[in-house]
Design a protein around this nucleic acid. Sequence first.
DNA 1: CATTGTTCATACCGAATGGTATAAACAATG
DNA 2: CATTGTTTATACCATTCGGTATGAACAATG
Lengths: 195, 195
Amino acid sequence: MPWEKTFDIDKATDKATEVFWKKGYEATSMADLIDAMQINKGSLYNAFGSKKALFDRALARYDQQNRAAKIAMLRQWDDPVAAIRALFDGLIDEARGDPRNMGCFIINTAQDLPNQPPEVAETVRQSLGDIESFFHEMIEKGQAKGQIPATVEARTTAQALLSMLVGLRLLARGAAGIPALEAIRDGALRLVENA
Amino acid sequence: MPWEKTFDIDKATDKATEVFWKKGYEATSMADLIDAMQINKGSLYNAFGSKKALFDRALARYDQQNRAAKIAMLRQWDDPVAAIRALFDGLIDEARGDPRNMGCFIINTAQDLPNQPPEVAETVRQSLGDIESFFHEMIEKGQAKGQIPATVEARTTAQALLSMLVGLRLLARGAAGIPALEAIRDGALRLVENA
DNA sequence: CATTGTTCATACCGAATGGTATAAACAATG
DNA sequence: CATTGTTTATACCATTCGGTATGAACAATG
């Protein structure tokens, strides 16, 4: 067997991710992708098969590398309230350092769910479901430790927190400044610490 | 002067709104619009000038007819907490009665702000700013009436409420069911009624 | 009835769309 | 060195894109 491959398929996928992330599926052309990925059209179709397949791979990889990894880290913190705060702080820091206002690839895609195939919808729902579960677990852990009032309803509060995270990420795309994002984080924490 | 016009330009705009609302600007083709608006291509360009001009008009009209009108009504309610609740209840009802998961045209567009021209960005920011102002006013009014604790910080809480509204609208596009939306509403009210 | 401006269907424009085909250049193995 | 599979560049495909042009049908005024 000769010469397995030359370009890094994961690095190329990451380049594609950036484009899909910023512009969305429909507004991204193959020309855009080829420009960004710096590989030839033939190589692209040989390696990924189609635009849609590339999108699926890009989304899945973003979900693993960015979203899931971050959540998994925080899940094993000792202080559950601090973990929730750290999650929001991380998103605010990301917004602060991003003049292009990319937001979150998963949430951008969630906004477009009615126009996406079922498999994409499933990926997005699982991803958001995992965030909600994180909130749920942290709340229950905080209640076990006496940090969070037992009167806080874990499931519904987790759903409310998810909506604030989603709102923060969307507003970070250009509609709100950093102070507003901090206000959202403070509101989220207030929801956790009061009954 | 002969025969000023025959089709209703506002009704045609509303048809266009539905398409832009569901698919977004880029993913909507002129063919889609002509199908939906049931007018000829020539008439469309004569009446609206361009795809972009039609989008601007559609967005502005949606903002006036749907968003601004609703807020203006609620603004003059006697009970400010009930007004906030009614706003969220209205959105949940809308989601319940909409199998197509349209969400909110303004918020869908807000998600796409980095790819929109400045004038669209301005429209969206004003629109969201007005919602935030509504929350702000209702909180202060509720505090004046003794319904809401004075320790609730009006400005930042208004921003937190906006993020929940935004999150609700986005999640209503297919990522969450009605019970989750109700949990978001309950969380929002909890933010208002607790310090 | 003539004028006027709108409607419609249709044809057209150049450019861009996602995707395929080709063939030479290339790098690693046997 | 021959083989093998990839990389590149380029040309090509039919279709669709946003937008324009045409001319006849049409409805209301003078």
